[in-house]
C-alpha cells in the first residue's frame, strides 16, 4: 500500500500492532543556516539514514524502525529537532498491507 499523506494520518488509522513496520522517506528542510546541524542531528538518530543534496538546502531522510513504539519515539525526536524547519513525507510502504 502506498501513501501520499503524512505519517500521522497513516499512524492514526492503524489499530493493530504491526509485525513489520513501513519504511518512510521524507524531504527535510533545515532552518536558515542550520543545514550542517540538521545533518549531524539526523545522523545521530538511530533508524535514520540521510542523503543531503549537493546543491540545495534539502536533506532526504529515510527511516526504518523495528516497531511502533520506536517509530512513535522517533517521530517525537524529529519534532523536537531545533535545526529542522519542516519535514514532508515522500514515500511510505507497508509490506503487511
Amino acid at each position: 500500500m502506498w501513501y501520499s499523506g503524512v505519517y500521522t494520518e497513516w499512524y492514526s488509522s492503524k489499530n493493530n500492532k504491526k509485525e513489520t513496520m513501513p519504511i518512510f522517506s521524507y524531504l527535510a528542510m533545515p532552518r536558515e543556516g542550520a543545514r550542517e546541524n540538521l545533518c549531524t542531528e539526523l545522523s545521530n538518530l538511530e533508524y535514520c539514514q540521510i542523503i543531503p543534496a549537493e546543491n540545495k538546502e534539502i536533506v532526504v531522510l529515510v527511516t526504518d524502525t523495528p516497531d511502533e513504539d520506536i517509530e512513535r519515539s522517533l517521530q517525537l525526536k524529529l519534532k523536537n529537532l531545533t535545526s529542522l524547519q519542516s519535514l514532508s513525507l515522500a514515500f511510505g510502504y507497508d509490506e503487511q498491507d
Binding site: 522517506s25 542523503i51 543534496a53 549537493e54 546543491n55 534539502i58 532526504v60 529515510v62
Partner: peptide
C-alpha cells in the same frame, strides 16, 4: 523510498543533485 524522495525533490527543486 530514496528514489521517491529524489523524484519529489527533483519536481520541487529543479536541478537538485544527490
Amino acid at each position: 523510498a530514496i528514489s521517491s524522495a529524489f523524484a519529489t525533490a527533483g519536481a520541487l527543486f529543479p536541478g537538485i543533485s544527490f
